[in-house]
Every structure is written in C-alpha cells, then in structure tokens.
Nucleic acid binder design. Structure first.
Lengths: 207, 207
DNA sequence: ATGTGTGAATCACTTCACAGCC
DNA sequence: GGCTGTGAAGTGATTCACACAT
C-alpha cells in the first residue's frame, strides 16, 4: 500500500495520525520507536498503530521499530503538512478568548496561518495588535473571498455563533473550529470541529 | 431497554448524546422534534439518532416525534447532569487563555463548577479576580485532594504540560481537558480530551 | 531474536426494514 | 398516516496470529 492520501483513510485512523504527528514532533529524530512504545504513550493498541502506519505506506519500520524522524516525515506528507503549502485561516470574534488564541502563537511550525481577524466592534479591531490584519465583521465576505481563506476559528458569543457560521459557509469556508458553547448546524459539504469546554468536560465525565 | 447509564453505552453514541443535549437546550421545551429534524441539524442519520435515544430508554417519542423538553431531561439524566450533583474542576495555568476561559462563564447552567485555579506565578494568582480561589502551583496537590476535585482544565505553556499533568493524575484527577499543543501521556484509568487548536485544524483539513 | 506488515477472524457500529402505536 | 423502536443484516474497524525481514 503506497501513497494513500489522508482523506481516503478511515476517520479513526486519520485522527490518530494527526495526534501521532504531534507526539512524534517532540521526540528526537534519530530515536527508534516501536509500536509498543507508542501504545504505552497513547493507550492505543500496538496493532492498531501498526495498521495505521502501514495504511499510509510508510514501510519505514525496520527490525527494531520505526525511525522517529522518517516516520514523522511520512505522516506529515500524508497529512499534507509540507512547508510549501500554507493553509489560510481566519479568526472570528476577538474577545478575550480570540485574543488569547492568536497571541499565543499556537500555530507556529504548522501549515496553518491566520490571515485575518474579524470583530463586530470596530473599536476592538483598531485597538488590538496582531501579526495579521483585523477587520470589522461586515467585511467578512469580501476578505474571505479575496484572500481565499478556507478555515475559520469561531470565538464569537454564543448568541451570534450560528448567524456568523451561516455567513462563513456561504462565502466558501470549508471548516470551522467551534469554540462557542452551541452546536453549529452546517451544510454537509463542510465540517465543524467542536472544541467547546462543555463538550469536552461532558465527554470526560461520561467516559 | 431502561435506565442504561451513560458509561455503559457505545462511545460514539455517548458523544452524540452529549452534543444532542447541547442542541436541545436551545430549542423550546414544548416543541416536538423528529429524528429527521435532528438529522437535518446534525448530519447524523435518523436511524442512528433513534437508536441512540432508545439506548438510554427514553421512550418519549410519540407518534409525531419527540417532545423536546422530555427528551432533553432524559438525556441529561443519562449523562448525570442533574442539578444536585456538582462536578468539581480546576483550571491550571492562568495566562490569557486560562483567564479567557474562566471569565466567560462558559459553565453556567452545567453541572461543572470550577473550584480552584492554579498558576506558577504568585503575582498572577494575587492580581486576577475570579469567583473561585486561586493558588500558586505548589499547593496543587493539597487543594485538589482536600476539595475532591476530579477534572482539570490544562492551559499551561506546552513546556510545562506533561509535568503538570503527571502531578494532576498522581493526586486523583480523573480527566484533563487539554488546551496545550502537546499530546499528554496518561495512565489508562484516566482520560484526556484534546481541545487543541492544532489538532482541530488538522482534523478539519484532513476531512 | 525482535518487531513489522497484513490476511483472516472477531467485534462494534450503522443501516435496513418493518411491526407497533398514537 | 407518520414516526418511533428494534430485530436482523450489512459495513467497517480492531484484534489475532503468524510469515517475513533484518
């Protein structure tokens, strides 16, 4: 099996590969790592890990386990995390949460780049300092289209969330990372990743 | 099927039920809602929704669909979201992100309550204002044990994350909501919900 | 000797399809 | 008539177990 692209493989495998990528990026490149080692760190069984890796056609596991650097490279390739391709995002809602997210440089070293920020308050867009341009919300459609932005980080108040999401999907946004407390209704050709504190806590408590 | 508790049912169903609860809480109690309506809003098939609901033994669907209020109540019961039971959480790391999370009152109306905050900087714990007590990180073990806190929201810098997580699990924390950019290695009798921006964006982009 | 890669078997989840009920 | 609730069938993911490579 060779050169399978990420969106072709099973959803569960895909998510594990995303996380495995993050895990490996903190391990010295030269180190070898076995599927049993990864099992200890993640809780996934070694066989599911071996299968995931074989699905992307890495074939980099020699007799003593995988070479961490090579494996990471294969995973990143499969995910399309190559230096040359930059994935444009915007952040909508520049309250405390929005500000905290973009000012902490979380996306450094990833293929994602925040290219625009939006807030309903003109005052806010003028006062805040960011490494990307800030616009009042009415300009949302124009900027997203002209910049070709495909992903949005949603940090507006709950009461605004669905309305803004509708506008985002209407102007070409393919996916939203939803930090609000409500569930976003969305078209079937788009995606929402729920990153809400309530969902996360409820999932923890129920597990 | 009656009175099945949430941790007994399939993981996928559990997660959908958590989300469904959030969705329903924004719908008038008196309204009736069919599994087909929910399909339109969530993208899950009506049959998977009907089965999820039947798993918790609601039996509240009459001939014209579910009564939103009754359904919500059944779901909340199954999740253990009853008024009387309060689930204690703490937040570790009171930087911008931590502050943004607790000051936005996201947990109002949920069974979760933040009972303590911790930060490495004594200055920070003294200056910030919160509706719960703030402590310097060395007091973490003492406070968590004496308060009986079971869940933690982790918003420390990446470089500290694993160290702090180890301490949290060692003193009785059962689950962590991880806002840091790294993957937390954790004991198998505990859980981590990853809520990192990078993971969410990567999952979106790969879908 | 050790750990991968992968068919085959198993297990879990989803969809089908329809009986039953308002 | 319309929609739920649920056995039975189908699909998809995980685990088993072992041949193979070093």
């Amino acid at each position: 099996m060779k050169n399978v692209t990420i969106s072709e493989l099973p959803e569960r495998s895909r998510r594990r590969i995303v996380q495995l990528t993050q895990l490996l990026s903190r391990i010295p490149e030269a180190q070898t790592i076995t599927s049993a080692d990864i099992e200890k760190m993640t809780g996934w069984t070694s066989s599911v890990i071996r299968r995931d890796i074989s699905l992307i056609g890495c074939q980099c596991g020699a007799t003593k386990g995988y070479n961490a650097g090579k494996l990471l490279k294969s995973l990143k390739d499969a995910l399309g995390h190559t230096e040359t391709v930059e994935k444009k995002c915007c952040i909508v809602g520049l309250g405390k949460l929005g500000e905290a997210l973009f000012s902490s440089n979380l996306l450094e070293g990833t293929p994602f780049r925040i290219s625009a920020g939006f807030d309903a308050s003109v005052n806010r867009t003028e006062v805040l300092k960011a490494s990307f341009p800030l616009y009042p919300t009415p300009e949302l459609e124009t900027v997203i289209k002209s910049e070709g932005i495909k992903y949005a980080i949603l940090t507006v108040p709950d009461s605004e969330a669905q309305k803004i999401a509708d506008r985002l999907f209407a102007c070409g946004i393919r996916g939203i990372v939803n930090y609000t407390g409500i569930m976003i209704v969305h078209p079937s050709d788009s995606a929402v990743e729920n990153v809400s504190l309530i969902t996360a806590l409820s999932d923890l408590a129920a597990s």
